[in-house]
Amino acid sequence: MDRLLSATNDFLSDHYVILKFVHMVLLPYRPGAPPLPMGPIWFLCSAIGKGCRMTLNAFGYVTGPWNASMRRKARAYRFPHIADFHLAHFGGNKERLHHSSNGEAYENAIHTHWWFLIITTPIIIVSITFTF
């Protein structure tokens, strides 16, 4: 297990920038990918925010003492992460509401999610800028 963690740590550390670039910039624009809803700037803000949270979480757990501060940041990022999961996969899941034919709930969920994205965008832009 230690060797696996160590290898993972080495791999992530060595290829961090490339992995991040592929994950956030290339993958969403691959052929056949669904269209981006609001253009590249919004997408980058959103994707970098999500990717940052995921990356901080992963690094916080995978790496060693080097990452004490990263682990703290990962904890702080849990709250938007929880909201993200709720809005996308649990109570606010639009696909499920849509299939349930509850148009009012679907419309409310769309508006709530839209407000979430709109309000968190400036927070994400500023926090990412100061994190890295």
């Binding site: 696909e95 849509h98 148009g103 679907y106 419309e107 508006h111 400036p122 927070i123």
Partner: peptide, 26 residues
């Protein structure tokens, strides 16, 4: 997915004052 029911669709309502309050709240 098929388009949502037209009866329940409503525009996304906001006002500049509301956005100012949100920004001030942040």
């Amino acid at each position: 997915l098929p388009l949502p029911d037209e009866k329940t669709v409503r525009p996304f309502a906001y006002s500049d004052a509301q956005v100012s309050r949100i920004a001030a709240g942040l």
